[in-house]
Nucleic acid binder design. Structure first.
Lengths: 207, 207
DNA sequence: GTCTATAGTATGATAGAC
DNA sequence: GTCTATCATACTATAGAC
């Protein structure tokens, strides 16, 4: 394994655990067993390292999600849950990158939104905007009773629930283990999340 | 206004905007127009200041929420939506603390969970554990088909959607106005949110 | 490519004069 | 209570020897 790989792997694990800003290059190089200066040699800056870590996942996940959404064409009727189920396979396939791939990716995505990493959000959106639009179209087809505006609002509520769930996952898992004697893997939070967001999306509008 | 008050007010605004760790004591004292050393004189440490900021809201919000939940006893049948309506008045009453009180409180709550501020979560839970339990009980009564663990998870998904909605409210309102010609007041986002979270909560579990 | 050494900057906290 | 000055400690980034 090259030094560059060692750095990306260590950075991913630490970013996913503590967030981007809270992880120092010293922690990363120490964990990777490489010299501190090597990060700037191989990546140029911490910011570039962050993008490299995200790119490794986004470049796999987004095309896979696009393919899943495409396959919805085969069905006559599309439900919200079917749309969100499209996230499962692309997410689980991230175990190719690392054993903790799915969990790490979701946590990283959460931090990318919650920390004021404007460059990350811009990167994600410009790079994969078409997939996002595709997703919106399917949700509209699954919920023709909702106006575009209503769908817009609910999508952002969903985004919030998802991001928050991932960023807080460790704390929540610990509480669930302590209070309910329930062992939950980070990547299985999505199993709990999907019924929730599908139900919220399909709910009848305010009365 | 005393120096102590100036510090708490400035800290609240900055914490709500950038998070706890990302806000320095120098930013706070500069914004408050007081000396740097005064934070440690009045509060002892940054950690203690964080708790003071949170305490000001929690000590108002939690008892008010408890009273609202208590009033549910008058009803024979309780729905999820009725339970969540209990949040409206206690939240809006936080304008007594500051004009941005409701929004700030929700943002601070989000940061308190997402940053690894173990001491904050512990503080919240030990101080107001009974209200949380009360809330869970009512939600359980409204949704007897869901297990305690399932309720716990969904409650936190709801917290995420709510926090995110408040955090992004200004941007979302502007987009809604531009794209959908829809005028929404910040305090009416909750009208859009409640059907969503009630629908998510009542959704049947994963299958 | 890899290292040491260090520049340059920011942080939380504190001692001590007033 | 409030101030200045400063300590001790982190951080990112880089220059320069090997």
């Amino acid at each position: 394994m090259t030094t560059k790989d060692k750095i990306v792997n260590a950075a991913e694990a630490l970013f996913a655990e503590h967030g981007f800003e809270q992880t120092s290059l010293r922690q990363i190089t120490s964990e990777a067993g490489v010299n501190l200066a090597s990060v700037n040699y191989h990546f140029g800056s911490k910011k570039a390292l962050i993008q490299a870590v995200m790119a490794r996942y986004l470049s796999r996940f987004m095309p896979a999600l696009a393919r899943q959404l495409q396959s919805l064409e085969n069905y006559q009727q599309v439900t919200s849950r079917a749309v969100f189920d499209c996230f499962r396979q692309p997410l689980m396939a991230l175990t190719d990158v690392s054993r903790q791939g799915p969990a790490n990716f979701l946590r990283l995505l959460g931090f990318a939104y919650s920390e004021i990493q404007g460059h990350l959000r811009k990167y994600t959106m410009t790079e994969f905007g078409t997939v996002i639009e595709q997703l919106l179209q399917w949700l509209h087809r699954a919920n023709p009773q909702l106006s575009d505006a209503e769908l817009f609002w609910r999508l952002h509520f969903i985004l919030g629930a998802t991001v928050f769930a991932q960023v807080s996952s460790q704390a929540l898992i610990e509480i669930a283990a302590a209070d309910f004697d329930e062992q939950v893997d980070p990547e299985h939070i999505i199993d709990k999340l999907i019924p929730f967001i599908a139900g919220g999306l399909d709910s009848s509008a305010a009365g």
